[in-house]
Write a protein that binds this DNA or RNA. Structure first.
Lengths: 318, 318
DNA sequence: ACCACCTATAGATATTTATCTATATTTAAT
DNA sequence: ATTAAATATAGATAAATATCTATAGGTGGT
């Protein structure tokens, strides 16, 4: 059996001949002429190097080799049909991988979206990568993921970003701190105290520092810490004051007080970012569609800010 | 996925690219140029209408759709390999159908050959058709079987016959018959008695009647019976005399005596017959080879007469 | 023996395909 | 920024393929 000269078309014609038991009938069914079918069968027999049919009572019957080939064809076409089905699920965003890379802070919000998504799309395999801004940025540049979540989206050429959530930054201090419970604080009041900060790459820090710079302020005393959690706990333990995404605080604000800094509004935004020069997986598109339509349901309404249409992830064309 | 523009070759190339993770490497392995492979992959992706690879760290990795296609290909090629294996068994005569049609009398001898054959070729499906000469002849004319067993082979154009066993005809009578135990009988002596005969189509009867005719004798009193067994039993019961293949008598010659007719030798022969204008199944050829080499082992030696080489069923060319 | 229906062969043609060489573009690493 | 390696594209060509029409050859039934 020499597969080189066998095409799927040839096998289709062959199967039709087995089913109909007649070359002429097959020609009629497939809108071909009888000699065409005759020749196809001849060629297939040459490729197999074995007769595939014998004539008996005006009909063609498959030989042993023919019958077995027919069964083989059925299985083969079955596999391609399965594949076709897989493709459809893939294109519908019901299957495949969805890779998201996000900066640390985002892990307080994104699970609220991809948790329900995963539950309703059980065959989609989610890969979530969490790291600091630098790390996520490098993944973005290499195009290792389908979707990126930034607070300050990169301004690179082929980056398309869309806001989906406000990211209000709040100043916090231990409840027994001298600033707590005071009203009408200014930024200048706060920076006099020992300040806990993230590492330089962090978006929160970048935003905060540019605010300081634009207002000509400097921190008198700062401590660098590696994670938002470390800062929150350190503030709680009385080490100093800090600025943090309100999402990081969560609901249990045990020993922490938000400060009423009235001259500063450091709100930023959360963005979904995609590379416009890369293919994005259907599952990831599906996830974005899901996010776009259920945003208000899974994230607290006053903060949502649905711009996801910018990523134009409309339904697939199948 | 449009299978019309997909060939097995294309899938082979695709699989090689998945395995090697590189178009150039695949080109080297398959002795093609790099643009050729590149183009093939492009075409396949067009047929699937989905990207199959993504580039990462200088290597091509299959996407979800690509990986699934690869698995599909593995299964598909697996089926064709299975088929290839089946074909080899078929050509080796280890598989498939073997259809034999034989005249009634032959059923006393053929099982001795195809019994052992079946035992050593368990995957060959034997179909045995038994009937009178006319019936077998009509099957031969329609080419419904691979192999035919006749005592008097048809002299049709595309019939090739080969002797394999002598078929001695003997005259029989009940043990208490007046002819029994007499020595030096002539044919003329025998035909005076009531004679039990098969139907007109029977080879035994044909042979006997032509002998009678050539010697100018006629039967004085004859009875027609449908089967060899009926004749044997009738003779045993004292109804008359008869001429039968010695093979039909078997070993238990209970109440039957062979007559010593010394002026007549009605020996004929058993023939395997094939149609030279038809394909004969590999299993049938295998059976003939088996018969040719084990003839003396399974049939009593003095009677065998191995001419089976005439059917030229040499080993397959695979 | 003839007719109707099937299958096979011959001859022709337009399309598709596999494949090449040459060159451009992209990507990764120095 | 330069280079090396990989991939993609363009252009060309010979071979293979699918398909047709016309015709010949078989087969089974009346």
């Amino acid at each position: 059996m020499d597969l080189r000269h066998v095409s799927f078309r040839l096998l289709e014609v062959f199967m039709s001949v087995v089913k109909s038991g007649s070359i002429s009938e097959t020609a009629r069914r497939l809108h071909l002429t009888q000699p065409t079918v005759s020749l196809q069968i001849k060629r297939l027999q040459e490729a197999v190097a074995e007769p595939l049919f014998y004539t008996y009572q005006q009909r063609l019957h498959p030989t042993d080799a023919g019958l077995r080939l027919f069964q083989t064809c059925q299985q083969v076409f079955g596999h391609f049909e399965d594949y076709q089905g897989y493709l459809e699920e893939l294109r519908g965003g019901e299957r495949g991988h969805c890779r998201i890379a996000m900066v640390n802070t985002a892990q307080y919000i994104l699970p609220k979206l991809y948790g329900p998504f995963s539950a309703t799309h059980p065959n989609v395999e989610m890969h979530v990568e969490v790291g600091n801004r630098e790390h996520v940025l490098s993944r973005f540049e290499r195009g290792e993921d389908d979707l990126y979540v930034f607070s300050h989206p990169p301004t690179l050429e082929h980056a398309q970003a869309a806001r989906f959530l406000k990211n209000p930054l709040v100043f916090i201090a231990p409840k027994n701190h001298s600033l707590s419970h005071r009203v009408g604080l200014t930024l200048a009041d706060v920076v006099k105290h020992r300040f806990l900060l993230r590492e330089s790459g962090s978006a929160t820090r970048m935003l905060f520092e540019s605010e300081l710079q634009s207002r000509g302020l400097v921190l008198s005393n700062s401590v660098k810490m590696a994670s938002n959690e470390a800062i929150r706990e350190a503030v709680s333990a009385g080490m100093g004051v800090a600025v943090l995404s309100e999402h990081v605080l969560g609901l249990d604000q045990s020993n922490i007080a938000k400060l009423d800094v009235c001259d500063t509004n450091l709100a930023s935004h959360w963005y979904f970012v995609v590379r416009t020069d890369r293919h994005i997986s259907h599952s990831a598109k599906s996830f974005l569609r899901f996010a776009a339509s259920h945003l208000e349901r899974y994230l607290q309404s006053p903060w949502t800010e649905n711009e996801l249409h910018l990523l134009n992830v409309t339904e697939q064309q199948s």
